[in-house]
Design a protein around this nucleic acid. Structure first.
Lengths: 333, 333
DNA sequence: TCCTTGATTGTAAGCGCTTACATTTATTCT
DNA sequence: AGAATAAATGTAAGCGCTTACAATCAAGGA
């Protein structure tokens, strides 16, 4: 079942069939409808390979994410996939893990699949060392690269980011305004967004007239038990704090567990603010105030930007989306 | 950059190049290594379209899941993707939602992409009405269909399922043995696995000498707040229960919240058992005893079976994997 | 040495589609 | 009406690869 069968049955040439397939306007309405009719009759579907060979595009976008089981990324994948499909594109997904080696390898694999663009979901794809991003900058000469919540300034690379800095800044400012003096900050990584968040925290303290104490800033594995343990041992060492802000909800869950373990009342004695407003932040008692980073909007914008790039439009290299603070039960201002 | 460039540079014909590309044994070692060398030199990657056109396979598997943001499915996707890739296959992902209409449409889309097989992740793909599954049975004549945690008995359809019945059965039996008399059962859907779970619950009650009370069996949306509300209103109506079993962790989280709201002690006054042992079950305080359905093993087996099918081996239509009960803090036996 | 055989390599015909260019048909203008 | 122009359709040459079949080569046996 191929284009020849259709052309024969419809009494036209394969070129004409191909034209109606591709929406070419140079086909009379009569012929078009006749051909469509035959296609339906025969249940014809064009062969993607042959099509790809000719057009050298597969209408497929590669999506890379470091870990699809992270609720934040899982959501992002869902929305990206939905938006792409709504625009007539398929997605092929790669879960890369975090090793640079792997990320590169998967990236090449996507390229070899002749995807029309690559979307990197999550901030884990921008490396600290500039040279480690060279492969992206290089590849961006040949096809658009979209960063969801990551930023790299290079032609052909488009970023959609959440305004992490101001999200954390304002949340911290509100904590300070409500009288918190010793705000602990827990972060998972020094990625692009991680750096912004941390800076937001520092700026808020500075503007709020509070000292920036290194002993209140800690890195922690993205794992609730790790966060709980860390807090317990910090407290055991005598560190005092009346609020915890985290770069990820999972750490905030750990903070709630820490408070429960020590019988500390939330939010009276300890305020807690998570990040991403994921399902995790709703699981605990009390439920965790968190920052909604608008994943859906982020993804919609990313895809819209990509379509703009495909359409040859003039498209901004970076789009910033504002986050929302979601007040739940671990804060009281 | 194509096969001709390589063949020219290596001083052989394109057929020979193609042969080394496909691991054809009829190539002398000397030629093979020479060609490989040239490929590396030129950084040659075969064009998937042309290849697909010739081979009529894309080495790509379609994965359908109803909702990638469900932690259980997100995990499944991760493992499936990993295993497929390890076997040299790519995956193209479709998040279908739950409407039959959509599922069918996405399925057709995958077929039109000429995927080599389709994996349906999750039990949401088998419909109650037999006729609604006809499209799967039909399609299975042309390509393998793999069900992860779903079952449909038809040629070309292969199922890997968790032994939900006995998982629930044994968990319930332990509750009963430890003296619980009124075990509430909350379920989300009457899918294949949903039905098995419910049956496991009923069988355990029966074998444990407990009556099966319809007022203790309730359907509930897969949402922790819905579960919490449902329990609160049931309790308000005077229903008594000393244990809650659920078909999904999210409902169990709701049960913990219910207990907190009413100041009921866990597990003394109320035992709770979740299902899937997902991250959610670790978020609450106390952490929820749950059933590990071995997603990873399920996925590994699915892919292994699929490779068996491709290899023409004799492959069982259904493989069952045993679940594990994970004792945490909401049970005390 | 010459033929047979098996191993290796080459030739060329597709695979199903797109598209530049050629051709035919319809339309408009004088 | 007939030429000039525009619209619709057809022809055929790829796109880069696989593979059946043909051709070549090396080695062993008579």
């Amino acid at each position: 079942m191929n284009i020849y069968d259709v052309s024969e049955r419809a009494g036209v040439s394969i070129a004409t069939v191909s034209r109606v397939l591709n929406g070419n306007p140079n086909v009379s309405e009569k012929t078009r409808s006749r051909v469509m009719e035959v296609m339906n009759e025969l249940g014809y579907t064009p062969n993607v390979f042959a099509r790809g060979l000719g057009l050298n595009t597969m209408r497929t976008i590669g999506i890379m994410c470091s870990d699809s089981s992270d609720p934040y990324l899982a959501n992002a994948i869902y929305y990206l996939e939905r938006e792409l499909r709504a625009n007539g594109y398929d997605s092929i997904l790669c879960c890369t893990g975090t090793s640079l080696e792997n990320k590169r390898q998967y990236f090449d694999l996507l390229l070899s699949k002749r995807v029309d663009a690559v979307i990197l979901a999550g901030s884990k794809f921008i490396e600290m060392e500039e040279k480690d991003n060279a492969y992206l900058i290089d590849a961006a000469r040949d096809l658009p690269i979209m960063l969801v919540n990551g930023f790299l300034d290079a032609p052909g690379i488009y970023s959609t980011v959440c305004d992490d800095h101001s999200a954390i800044y304002h949340a911290a400012a509100r904590l300070i305004a409500s009288g918190r003096k010793r705000i602990l900050y827990l972060y998972t990584s020094r990625s692009y967004s991680g750096t912004n968040k941390l800076q937001g925290y520092k700026d808020a303290l500075r503007d709020g007239g509070l000292p920036i104490r290194p002993e209140l800033i800690h890195q922690c594995a993205k794992d609730l038990h790790a966060a709980r343990s860390l807090l317990l041992s910090l407290a055991a060492e005598g560190l005092e704090f009346d609020a915890v802000m985290t770069s990820d909800d999972s750490l905030a869950v750990g903070a709630v567990k820490y408070a429960h373990a020590r019988n500390i009342s939330i939010p009276e004695e300890l305020a807690i603010i998570g990040y991403n407003n994921s399902m995790l932040s709703y699981c605990t008692d009390p439920e965790i105030s968190s920052i909604d980073t608008k994943v859906e909007e982020l993804c919609i914008t990313t895809v819209k930007t990509l379509m703009g790039v495909f359409g040859g439009g003039d498209v901004p290299g970076k789009t910033t989306i504002a986050a929302d603070f979601i007040q739940k039960q671990t804060t009281n201002f």
